[in-house]
């Protein structure tokens, strides 16, 4: 696919855009990578409680250098802090929160998302790779809303939003919305539907870089 250079949102701008959609009072699990950037962009006046699946609700930012505890870490195994009102718990309770539908939002990265909302984000299926799944399958199976944040295309320019995932699935029909550098797109019963374009990006560009039909935003005429 030949592509002209389109300057969509940066990783930070994608995180900032998603953060606008996190409601006050939400319990949220942020995955590793771009999702980790989101917390610092949540608008002032909203209180969001972050869950990390290794046993903490009320996760705060990284500690001041020298004040961390190697036994206070996040799912990415980096040192974090516990905010006032935090709670520690064991893994079976942590995943009861996840699987039992108690968390409001999970934000994850993706290799591919299908028009039906299937997610592939744990394995490229290469025979020599070490398979590792972590908590992703539990998160997508149980959390009330699942948002994906990802570049619209791979480094090679292949669409990540596709008709059907070719990589091994993390979950079937689990994704609600996708935030990319180019657009915000909902997964609907009719397939991908545009919510909004990134500044300076037009519909045709997004459609060209999407591996399935993209429906125009609700109420929009083109």
């Amino acid at each position: 696919m030949s592509q002209t250079q389109i300057n969509g949102r940066t990783r930070e701008e994608m995180a900032q855009r998603l953060a606008q959609d996190i409601a006050d009072g939400s319990y949220v699990n942020l995955g590793i990578g771009i999702p980790e950037l989101i917390a610092k962009f949540v608008p002032e006046g909203r209180e969001v409680i972050y869950h990390t699946e290794n046993g903490l609700l009320g996760m705060g930012p990284s500690p001041i250098k020298g004040e961390g505890d190697p036994e206070l870490i996040n799912a990415g195994k980096r040192q974090v802090t516990a905010l006032p009102g935090a709670a520690f718990f064991h893994h079976a309770d942590s995943f009861a929160m996840i699987r039992g539908g108690h968390l409001d939002l999970s934000v994850l990265g993706a290799l591919q998302v299908s028009a039906e909302g299937d997610l592939a984000n744990w394995s490229t299926g290469e025979p020599d790779a070490i398979p590792a799944v972590g908590g992703a399958m539990d998160l997508v199976a149980g959390v009330k809303k699942v948002y994906v944040i990802t570049q619209h295309c791979t480094k090679e320019g292949e669409p990540k939003l596709v008709e059907r995932c070719t990589y091994p699935l993390t979950g079937r029909r689990v994704v609600d919305r996708v935030y990319t550098d180019l657009a915000v797109i909902d997964i609907t019963p009719d397939g991908f539907r545009l919510v909004e374009l990134s500044p300076g990006v037009d519909f045709e560009t997004v459609q060209e870089r999407t591996g399935a039909t993209l429906l125009p935003a609700d109420g929009a005429t083109r």
Binding site: S94, R99, P131, M137, D138
Partner: peptide
């Protein structure tokens, strides 16, 4: 160890493992 087949792996989702 995994690639040489000396250690087998049963991969389990984290929450399923805990449960």
């Amino acid at each position: 160890l995994y690639r040489s087949g000396r250690t087998k792996l049963e991969l389990v989702p984290q929450g399923t493992l805990a449960e």
